[in-house]
């Protein structure tokens, strides 16, 4: 016996819709399903890699994950500070200020006390350092300054090696966003791989609102752009002017990046 569909009751629109949908056999293309599931799998694998150190080392893993790169970076920064201070430590009676500021009459010491150069980023926020600088200027006297600068250098090094200090970790995090963008800009895929293993914000932006993906696109760095996309970089993260990576790629004539961006939903 033939099963004719019962007549629809136009009064029940929802029922009409449900029955029409039930008999609808149209589907999204198989290619879409495949691409979506593959993409999801890659992102999950990336997340699993990120989570792996956490599951292996228990509590305080966040600190530990940062300890290596943070220590290297901050020690290097402190060492640089020491090197920069070295000439002054060897020649305590320096009379020329490096600051392009005219000497203050109310503070004669300012004429003979060399200004402490900006501390490299890792040691910059140390309040003790700022206090030492301030005291050095206030008290004056080259030997005293030399001694205090020596103390400053020592403390800088100490601060640099204490990688669990929240300020330093925060700075390392900030710096890694910049490092990620730099690696993307120059197309250093190996460096990107390393940085992406860390808890780096893949969509962090520079002062112009550009992400690592945007910079890789600007530079025509296909490998870097592809790597960032597979790690979940937002393909539509526009810069401060609202320009998207896809628009840049098209304008710059990078068809491979255009294709990659489109595959990942770039608009």
């Amino acid at each position: 016996m033939t099963d004719f569909p019962p007549p629809y009751d136009p009064g029940d629109v929802d029922e009409w819709y449900r029955r029409a949908s039930a008999s609808d056999r149209s589907r999204p293309s198989a290619a879409v399903r495949q691409v979506v599931l593959e993409h999801a799998e890659k992102l999950a694998a990336a997340r699993a890699r990120e989570a792996q150190p956490a599951s292996q080392s228990g509590h305080r893993v966040g600190w530990r994950a940062w300890r290596g790169p943070a220590a290297v970076g901050t020690v290097a920064a402190a060492a640089l500070a020491v090197v920069m201070q070295l000439p002054r430590l060897l020649q305590p009676h320096v009379t020329q200020s490096v600051e392009p500021v005219s000497p203050s009459r109310s503070n004669p010491a300012a004429t003979s006390v060399p200004a402490v150069p900006p501390v490299p980023s890792a040691a910059a926020p140390a309040p003790d350092v700022a206090r030492l600088q301030s005291e050095a200027r206030a008290k004056g006297g080259a030997p005293a300054v030399a001694a205090r600068e020596s103390e400053f250098a020592r403390q800088s090094l100490d601060m640099a090696t204490r990688t669990e200090a929240p300020a330093l970790v925060a700075q390392a995090s900030h710096g890694s966003g910049a490092a990620l963008r730099h690696a993307a800009e120059i197309g250093d895929v190996a460096a990107l791989e390393v940085l992406l293993q860390k808890h780096v914000d893949i969509d962090s932006r520079d002062s112009l609102g550009r992400t690592a993906l945007m910079l890789a696109t600007l530079g025509g760095r296909t490998g870097a752009a592809a790597l960032l996309l597979t790690h979940g970089a937002d393909p539509n993260a526009a810069d401060g002017r609202g320009t998207t990576p896809l628009e840049i790629a098209r304008a710059s004539g990078h068809p491979d990046i255009v294709a990659a961006l489109e595959r990942y939903g770039g608009r």
């Binding site: 589907r27 999204p28 399903r33 599931l37 999801a40 999950a44 694998a45 997340r47 699993a48 989570a51």
Partner: peptide, 18 residues
């Protein structure tokens, strides 16, 4: 899926695909 279990995505997709 957020925790990195790739296998969790496919059933979610299949469930809501249509």
């Amino acid at each position: 899926y957020v925790r990195g279990d790739a296998a969790a995505f496919a059933p979610l997709y299949r469930r809501h695909e249509m």
